[in-house]
C-alpha cells in the first residue's frame, strides 16, 4: 500500500455456490410417476373432505386427514389459468412457451403443464385460444419416463373458441 487515496478500493468477490439436496419421493410421488409411465394421471382422494387432488398428496390440508384412495383423472379438462412466457425465464425450454393450470375431469384441483401445438407468433391471439374456460386434452409423449413432462395439454379442436366450456 502506498500513498493516500480518497477513494476506497471497490470490487466484488465472486463465488459459485452449489448445494446438493435429495428430495424424497415420500408416500405418493412414486405412484404418480409410475402411473405416468403407463399413461395414467393418478390423483389422491380424501374421503373426509371428498376432495380429489392433483398433484396427488398424502394428506388433505383441509380435513387434516390422510388421503385414502387413488383416482384416475380424465384426459380432458378445463383451463383455470394460463399465460405465455415471452422472455426472461431461463428454464428448461426457451420461450415463448404457453403454460396452463388445467382441472382435469373428475379432479377438484388444477395441475400445471405446458400447452403444446399453439401458434405463438401472435401472443394476443394465442392467449385468446387458451383463456380460462377453454377445454383441453392430455397428450403423452411417445416414451413416458415417469416425469411431469411426460404429458402436456393440447387444445381440443383447431378452433379453441368452439371448445369453450360453460365456465362458472
Amino acid at each position: 500500500m502506498s500513498g493516500n487515496t480518497a477513494e476506497p478500493a471497490r470490487g466484488y468477490l465472486t463465488e459459485q455456490v452449489t448445494l446438493r439436496y435429495d428430495y424424497a419421493f415420500g408416500e405418493v410421488v412414486g405412484t404418480f410417476m409410475d402411473g405416468l409411465k403407463n399413461r395414467k394421471i393418478l390423483a389422491t382422494r380424501c374421503s373426509k373432505s371428498a376432495m380429489v387432488y392433483l398433484p396427488p398428496r398424502a394428506f388433505c390440508e383441509r380435513s387434516f386427514e390422510k388421503c385414502d384412495s387413488w383416482v384416475e383423472a380424465g384426459h380432458e379438462g378445463v383451463i383455470e389459468a394460463s399465460t405465455i412466457v415471452v422472455r426472461g425465464f431461463e428454464g428448461s425450454r426457451p420461450p415463448p412457451i404457453a403454460v396452463a393450470y388445467v382441472r382435469l375431469d373428475g379432479v377438484d384441483s388444477a395441475i400445471v403443464n405446458y400447452v403444446e401445438g399453439l401458434d405463438l407468433s401472435d401472443v394476443e391471439a394465442a392467449m385468446r385460444r387458451i383463456c380460462p374456460g377453454t377445454r383441453v386434452s392430455v397428450e403423452f409423449i411417445d416414451e413416458p419416463q415417469g416425469s411431469i413432462t411426460d404429458f402436456h395439454y393440447r387444445l381440443l379442436t383447431d378452433d379453441g373458441s368452439a371448445a369453450r366450456a360453460g365456465g362458472r
Binding site: V29, F32, M33, T83, G88, P95, I97, V112, I148
Partner: peptide, 25 residues
C-alpha cells in the same frame, strides 16, 4: 414443488400472470 412444478417456467412473474389473466377476463 420439486416434482410437479419446478420443471415448469414458474416463478413470481409467471404465476401472478396466470392469475392476472383470469382476473382480467
Amino acid at each position: 414443488d420439486p416434482f410437479y412444478e419446478k420443471e415448469m417456467p414458474l416463478q413470481t412473474i409467471t404465476t401472478v400472470a396466470l392469475m392476472a389473466n383470469a382476473y382480467m377476463q
